[in-house]
Design a protein around this nucleic acid. Structure first.
Lengths: 213, 213, 213, 213
DNA sequence: TATGAATGAGTTTTCATTCAT
DNA sequence: TATGAATGAAAACTCATTCAT
């Protein structure tokens, strides 16, 4: 979630500035996702991070900026998984890989997933953030579009099937994040299978060749 | 959404109390679902409703109460559709009926659907509201459980498949609400079909009899 | 407490205006003295009186006016006792008579006494009210001044001894009003005696004649 | 009324926090006692103290808390005098000492005395404040009870004679506070004497020994 | 005269942000 | 870079008063 440019400086008496920023990010992330944005006051973030109120403004222009920077870092975390899925494999396998990576990311960073995909924050993020999340969805759509071209995915808009698949995969991530399920619970795989069944060409029609959009 | 007992009294100089309440409900509903609860201030609601700020408090104890009263009216709107689905028909048909009714309700009252099912409001509603929404989900689960017993629905928790189906149906309702799709667009039916495919027993296994939970 | 000009009209279907006014006065008196002026809202007064909010303003120009009219009626109630004390009797007897009458008035109308003499209302009353209470105190002072002239009361300002006597007599009235004491409790007489002892020429000096002011 | 730990720092550009708090206490004290609690708005307190409105809430949780903190500091101011009166001296002397100390305290801090003993605030203070004022009265009663045991004070409840004495002594404090009298005016001593005469065993009965309660 | 829904100025309180240190 | 007291605009809410009926 943080750019790992500066190595942790354990010997220094004075706090490393990178550390202060990270502590703020961690505190804000936790508070935003558990209490909500408006219920999280800046004094609360500061005290949770163990710094003074004013210090927030050394690192972020505003509370809003703080939210958006965390948001975009979160999007980057998930976007990596999409880009890394090998384009030579078929759609089903690529989606399965993305789902597994997201599942693992959600298990490691449950709060980030909630921030990025929870619709409570959709109304709060700025244009720049909206652009990056749209890019993430765009990349997912490309995978689906390739699947459609290969007659793996149902006819209809790739955007739609991307959204359908996403909704169900995110259902799993929510429950993992909430602690209801473990990452390796069978229910997780069940939902992933259901997500694929929702968008794939149904079995009966599988014999047919590529379809028009 | 409102009890239609009092006819609009256009000749009267003095406003009908029912009308004022309705205007407030309409204004709040629209603002809450477009801007969010916290971004909607009481002066804004009042001016949108064309009344003075203090008038809000003649009809609702607080802004919070206003939200919750609208929320519960919304739940009632959707709960009716679930209860009315004929229990003698099979699961697939009952769900199809519920989906169609919700589609129509969402087309008539797009904002209500967003308020009730959008997770941005989950953290804001009170205990009473939480109870009524839980009841609605409970009734949906019963339909799914019956389907499972009849080997129509996949093995796994009925709660899970209820949630899966709901997510996809709500995807359609969001787009209808947003105006992206019309209620009778083919994409709506595509998504409904996908929702059923995501939870039904897959075609290959269809020959098998009833499964254990 | 109310001017008894209009006879109660029990036959009339529509409420006698005098009655409405009385009900408002009673309700306001009770609420002002138990809850306080600011804690008593006009809707509360109206509902206690069994009338609509707007009706208050048919009888009183404002909430403030309502308070002051009750206040002045209360002052009149107590002022009567002072004027009626026979000027031919000596100071001690006149004060004793006033004390007894006030004691009885306080027993009958505890709330009025609290309104008139409780210092919680001193800051709230208008100039006209301040004039009438000052007149009441002036009349009491005259009684004291006569006592001083007759060498019954200590040297010093008559205003001062009037105040001293008043404070102690009011102590008794408070406890009667509060229900701590009954009007004929021995403690009441003890306090009246103490009030007289506080202002009379002490026993040792009693032999001396009239003193200079 | 305030802990004199921090010296006034006139050179500093940034205000000392202690100073800000004191300014708020001073402003509130003056306004509460002259205009009344409800007539004193928070913008008024702030502007009188020369700070922004929000600053009140950095030092006090609420307007109510502000009142109560001042109130309790006031009670402490007066309670000291009661505790310090030498218990080996007789009742008359102890009361005389308390009266003189209160007189001096009232001369130095007129508003505090009004806040603590004026019954306009009785209904506004919280439980904690009620406890401390009850303790103060309890200590005064002990002095009176000792006097009764020594046949200095009249038979009757010590609580009653404590209240009688207090009322008259407070009369003097009010006038000193109001500026009507100076602390060393002869009238002050006259009232103190009257207060003692009101509660002491009358001269005629002085020869008798200790009485039953 | 009585009603009561509506009003809007005014209240207390919150909190993101600033700035002298 | 860090601090934290101070800020002040804006929030939710109250309530005495008005006025069409």
């Amino acid at each position: 979630l943080t750019d790992q440019t500066a190595p942790p400086d354990v010997t220094a008496r004075r706090r490393n500035p990178r550390q202060t920023r990270d502590r703020l990010v961690r505190a804000a992330l936790e508070l935003f996702t558990t209490r909500g944005y408006h219920e999280t006051t800046t004094p609360l973030i500061a005290s949770r991070a163990g710094v003074a109120e004013g210090t927030i403004y050394r690192h972020f222009a505003s509370k809003d900026e703080l939210l958006n920077e965390i948001y975009r870092a979160g999007v980057r975390l998930f976007a990596g998984a999409v880009r890394e899925a090998d384009p030579r494999t078929n759609c089903r396998e690529r989606l399965a890989l993305i789902a597994r990576r997201w599942r693992d990311a959600a298990a490691r960073e449950p709060a980030v997933a909630k921030l990025v995909f929870g619709d409570a924050f959709a109304a709060l993020v700025d244009d720049k953030s909206r652009t990056v999340i749209r890019e993430l969805r765009g990349e997912l759509e490309k995978v689906i579009a390739a699947g459609k071209a290969a007659a793996e995915v149902r006819p209809g808009s790739a955007e739609l099937w991307g959204e359908v698949w996403l909704r169900l995969v995110l259902l799993a991530r929510e429950r993992i994040a909430r602690g209801t399920w473990k990452a390796d619970a069978p229910a997780v795989q069940q939902v992933f299978d259901a997500a694929w069944d929702a968008i794939r060409v149904p079995a009966a029609e599988r014999t047919a060749g590529p379809q028009p959009a």
